[in-house]
C-alpha cells in the first residue's frame, strides 16, 4: 500500500485560502490508514475549525471514491459532484491528485497528504515500513523474500556492509539491516550457497523513468 501522512493544517489552509467552495475527496484505495469518508469528514471539520480562526468560512463538501488512481472511476465519480466547486482537496497519494488534474482540468486539485513510500503495515507493531522500491527487476527470489533495494539504506547487492550492528543498520538502530535478515533467512532455508553464484549485472534500465507501459 501507499503510505501517506497528513500535511500540516496550516499548509493546507494556506493553499486553499483563495477558494471557498471545496470538495474533499477521500480515497478508499491503498493509502494507509484508509483515507476514506471518515478521514474526509474529519479533515473537513478540522479545516472548518482552522478556517474560523483565520476568519475564513469554507463551504466544504465531502466524498470518497474506490481509488483515485483510476481515471475512469475518478472522472465518473467526481464530475457529478463538482457543480459550484472551486477546488478539490484530495486525500489520496500523489497519484490521486494527478489523476484528478488530468480528468478534471478545469478544477484545481490539491494534496492533503505527503506521500512517503510503498510499504507494509505491520499491525502488531503499529508501524508502516517501506518494503518495495519499484526497481523494475525484482530479486526477491534470490534474496529469500527480503528486498535489499528498498530495505538496505545503501541498496547494496552484496551486503551486509560494515555498518551492520547486531542486526541493525548504523543509520538508525530502530531499523533492521536488510542483509542481516537476508543471510539469516537463506541460512534457515538452506539456500545460503545461492549467494555464491556469479550473476550478471542487474538491469537498471527495466523501467525507463518516467515509467509508462501499455496495459
Amino acid at each position: 500500500m501507499i503510505i501517506t501522512t497528513q500535511k500540516p493544517l496550516d499548509e493546507i489552509l494556506d493553499f486553499l485560502s483563495p477558494y471557498n467552495s471545496i470538495l474533499i475527496a477521500g480515497c478508499d484505495g491503498c493509502t494507509q490508514p484508509p483515507r476514506g469518508l471518515r478521514e474526509a469528514r474529519t479533515l473537513a471539520q478540522l479545516l472548518e475549525l482552522g478556517g474560523k480562526l483565520r476568519s475564513k468560512n469554507f463551504n466544504l463538501r465531502v466524498t470518497t471514491l474506490p481509488k483515485q488512481c483510476d481515471s475512469y472511476l475518478t472522472l465518473t465519480t467526481l464530475q457529478t459532484q463538482i457543480d459550484g466547486i472551486e477546488a478539490i482537496l484530495s486525500l489520496a497519494c500523489g497519484l490521486g491528485v494527478q489523476t484528478i488534474t488530468q480528468v478534471l482540468p478545469d478544477c484545481p486539485a490539491f494534496p492533503s497528504q505527503n506521500t512517503l513510500f510503498m510499504g507494509s503495515e505491520i499491525r502488531e507493531d503499529n508501524t508502516l515500513e517501506e518494503r518495495c522500491a519499484a526497481c523494475g527487476d525484482c530479486m526477491l527470489a534470490i534474496t529469500g523474500g527480503i528486498c535489499p533495494i528498498a530495505r538496505c539504506a545503501k541498496s547494496l547487492l552484496n551486503g551486509p556492509c560494515g555498518g551492520s550492528q547486531h542486526g541493525k543498520c548504523e543509520i538508525d538502530p530502530e531499523k533492521d539491516c536488510a542483509w542481516d535478515l537476508i543471510i539469516k533467512r537463506l541460512e534457515k532455508l538452506g539456500r545460503l550457497s545461492a549467494l555464491d553464484e556469479i550473476r550478471t549485472p542487474r538491469n537498471f534500465g527495466q523501467v525507463v523513468r518516467p515509467g509508462k507501459i501499455r496495459g
Binding site: L9, L46, L49, L53
Partner: peptide, 8 residues
C-alpha cells in the same frame, strides 16, 4: 496533536 496545529 492535530488540534495543536490550530491551537485547540
Amino acid at each position: 496533536k492535530t488540534l495543536s496545529q490550530i491551537g485547540l
